[in-house]
Structure formats: structure tokens, C-alpha cells
């Protein structure tokens, strides 16, 4: 539980931070909830840690032009308790409230979590269902990628060397839409064995829009496009839920085999969709 020596920088401005990391060989840290345990286990041994925690304004949460902007270092607690997020993108607040425990939610950040890209993290399901975008900046670039193009593989994202996650841009949910994040937490780690985020819009009793993001089930979070289409073309929840994990590679571990995970995905997708439907008006 003793990490290797490392150099530590806590830049006071974004420019300084981007300069520091432009060289490559360093690890960016936000809340440290994933990085520090790995360093203590010596599974990670970065020579240089750049802590974004003191960059002012990087944790701001604001709304403009139909989009909620969440700074990378906003903590899970900030997100679950923010009036803007609770009011405008309540699905994300609901997802944040399921992460880890109180201590982790007080330290851990949105940017840190998505950049780490644990295949069982909670946020990706909601960000996919919300069709969020991630803004990435480096010393000489500034680009925005769709959530769907951000999560590539386990622990692998679209973030390039020298880049950091600056903010996450989430289109606001319409007040009349229904949403739900359901999760089966691992009894030890709290990670999602399966996590399903659902959004539903209804008009005239019909589902006009369905968005389903799934985490934990496969090597990366995914959107259940086939299931969304089924719902939008009038299929019932059970039929759609059965299609959620179809064709997806499925994880297996000591707690849940691939077969059981697929089953859980179906069950919890159905439960999330049912609740989202009941909330939609």
C-alpha cells in the first residue's frame, strides 16, 4: 500500500496544466479515486502526477442554449446535488447518486471517471442515453466528441496524449420525458455488475423516443440501438429489454457469469424502461 515515488504538480491555471501534460509522460489526476488505489497497489507507477484539483472553474456546472455544461472536476456529489442537473438532466443526477459511497462521491469527479473508463462505471450509460458530448483540450487543440465515440475499450477512450477532458456537454432532458438509472451494484466494489440508463419520450400514448445506455455488461458501455428502435416502433418493454444485450460481448467474473449478466441486463433494462415509461407524460 506504498506507492512509488512520483513528482506531483498542482497547476493553478488550465494553461499551466496543459503545458505540463503536453510532454506526455505524466498522469492526469482529478479526484484520484481510481488512480490512487492503483498507485498504492503499484499497478500504476506514474513518474509525474498532474493534479487538476486546483484549476479554478474546472468544476463549474452551468446551463446555456439547451445544454448543461459540467466541468471535468465537478464531483459526483456536486452532480447528484446540483439544482441545475437535478432540474435539467435528472438522469445524470440519479446515476451520480449510485456511485461508490459518500466518501468516493465527495472526492471522485465526472471527468476523472470517464477518462478512466472503467467498463463498469456508472456515468457512461447515462451519458450515452443523454447523447452527451465530451470536450477535450490540449495545449494546441480543442475538440468535442460524441459520448458514443468516446468510450472505445476497457479503460480506453478517445482522449489523446496531451489532452484532458475539459467538460461534458449534456443536452437538457425535456421536462415531460421519463428517465431511470437502474443498477446492480457489486456487493464488494460497488461497481455496476449491470447498469441501465433509460430515457423515454411519449406522445399520444406512443413512445416517440427511446434512449438506452448500458454499462457493466460488456467491455465498454454501449447504446442499445436495436432495443431503442423496437420501442419507438411500438414493441413492448419485454421485447425491447430482451434485445438490449443481443449481439453484445458480455463480461464474466466471479460474481456473474456472462449468461447471468445477459439475463440481469434484460431484467434491469425492463425495470428501468418500465419506470422511465411511468415517469414520462
Amino acid at each position: 500500500m506504498i506507492p512509488q515515488n512520483f513528482e506531483y504538480s498542482a497547476p493553478a491555471t488550465l494553461q499551466e496544466a496543459l503545458q505540463l501534460i503536453s510532454g506526455g509522460e505524466c498522469k492526469v489526476m482529478a479526484g484520484g479515486m481510481s488512480l490512487i488505489p492503483l498507485m498504492k497497489l503499484r499497478l500504476a507507477a506514474p513518474e509525474h502526477v498532474v493534479d487538476l484539483g486546483r484549476v479554478p472553474g474546472l468544476n463549474s456546472i452551468s446551463e446555456s442554449g439547451g445544454v448543461v455544461c459540467i466541468g471535468a472536476t465537478a464531483t459526483h456529489h456536486d452532480i447528484e446535488s446540483s439544482p441545475v442537473i437535478r432540474g435539467r438532466v435528472p438522469l445524470l443526477a440519479e446515476a451520480a447518486s449510485h456511485i461508490g459511497d459518500v466518501q468516493v462521491r465527495n472526492r471522485g469527479t465526472l471527468g476523472g471517471s470517464i477518462a478512466h473508463a472503467d467498463p463498469a462505471a456508472d456515468y457512461p450509460a447515462s451519458l450515452l442515453a443523454l447523447e452527451a458530448k465530451v470536450r477535450l483540450v490540449s495545449a494546441n487543440s480543442d475538440r468535442t466528441v460524441e459520448a458514443a465515440d468516446f468510450f472505445l475499450d476497457p479503460f480506453t477512450t478517445a482522449v489523446e496524449s496531451g489532452e484532458i477532458v475539459l467538460e461534458v456537454l449534456v443536452p437538457i432532458e425535456e421536462p415531460r420525458e421519463g428517465y431511470r438509472y437502474e443498477k446492480v451494484p457489486h456487493p464488494a466494489s460497488g461497481f455496476a455488475v449491470v447498469g441501465v440508463a433509460a430515457r423515454i419520450k411519449k406522445a399520444g400514448g406512443k413512445t416517440t423516443l427511446a434512449r438506452i445506455g448500458v454499462t457493466g455488461t460488456g467491455p465498454r458501455a454501449f447504446r442499445a440501438l436495436a432495443a431503442e428502435k423496437l420501442l419507438e416502433s411500438g414493441a413492448d418493454v419485454a421485447t425491447a429489454a430482451a434485445a438490449v444485450a443481443e449481439g453484445q460481448e458480455t463480461n464474466a467474473d466471479l460474481y456473474a457469469s456472462a449468461e447471468y449478466r445477459r439475463h440481469l441486463t434484460r431484467v434491469w433494462a425492463a425495470r428501468a424502461l418500465t419506470l422511465a415509461l411511468s415517469r414520462a407524460s
Binding site: P154, P219, N251, D253, L254, Y255
Partner: peptide, 10 residues
């Protein structure tokens, strides 16, 4: 352990 299977496949 949680990630061995996923990682091996990757």
C-alpha cells in the same frame, strides 16, 4: 479479477 476476462479478450 473483475477485469481479467474482459482484458484477456481485448
Amino acid at each position: 479479477q473483475r477485469l481479467l476476462d474482459t482484458t484477456a479478450r481485448m
